[in-house]
Amino acid sequence: MAELGPVLEVFLGGLMSGVLYALVALGFVLIFKASGVFNFAQGAMVLFAALSLVRLSEWLPFGVAVLLTIAIMIALAWAVERLVLRPLVGQHGLILFMATIGVTFFLDGFGQTIWGSNVYQLDLGIPASPWFLFENLFPGGILVSPIDVFAAVIAGTLVVALSIFFHSTKIGRALRAVADDHQAAQSVGIPLNQIWLIVWSTAGIVALVAGMAWGTKLGVQFSLSLIALKALPVLILGGLTSIPGAIIGGLIIGAGEKLAEFYIGPLIGGGIEYWFAYVLALAVLLVRPQGLFGEKIIERV
């Protein structure tokens, strides 16, 4: 039983970072569901939102900075819808995907040009010192970072809020209709462009939340953009169209890669966190191409 303490600690730590992956993956899923676009720029949006927030809050009250950042993300969603998606409507998914890679590079360059490219500390007033849980059960207890807990709570709230939004509001129903069938939705009078704007704005706000969580943990810096790459296997695992899939996929990957590092890492040189998520996702792909929770795609001629 002496072994269990550290393992549990690794496991919990993994779950917590999994939540953060899930936050990024959530943005992907929203956009993919509603517009069929695999938005590679989600990570760049996380960076851009976090940078905007941290730099604005240097000379504005925090609440105002948050509101202003939300406004910026909505403006960004509008620009993407207008300048990139609308001209490319009806194009092959691959073309749209590559266009979002273009958006990624533009946003990364643009964000760092206007907001700077140093590492910025984002302080949300959360105690930095770790908590120790179950000290009576395990020697030394289990170390848990309050930031992680905070992020998990935020993520949970967000998922609940999004589910309510999707299932109980008029806009949510329209979104689901669009996700099912673009043309049918359009023919019953759902304005596609507005829906896309709403979805991209929502994804922008989700990116802001993810940026806040990651920024608090790691500092706001360029590497946040790369987190998106970690969210890709989460998506594959969970299925591109499933919100619960994004969450569970995130948890599996987060915990899985930490445990793998703990158990297998020392045997083969360490650092396997770097690719573990991808190889896991690839294995899932080969067995179940639609992911754990995704909808099976039926081909028609």
């Binding site: 695999f38 083969i268 991808y278 190889v279 080969l286 191409p289």
Partner: peptide, 29 residues
């Protein structure tokens, strides 16, 4: 090989997997 079962976007992820694995292998092995 995954391209036989999966298309487009999924393939992007499969090839990224190779990229990360290769980065790691040539650094750590």
């Amino acid at each position: 090989l995954p391209s036989l079962r999966i298309k487009g976007l999924y393939l992007a992820v499969a090839t990224l997997a190779l990229q990360f694995f290769a980065d790691w292998a040539f650094l750590r092995v």
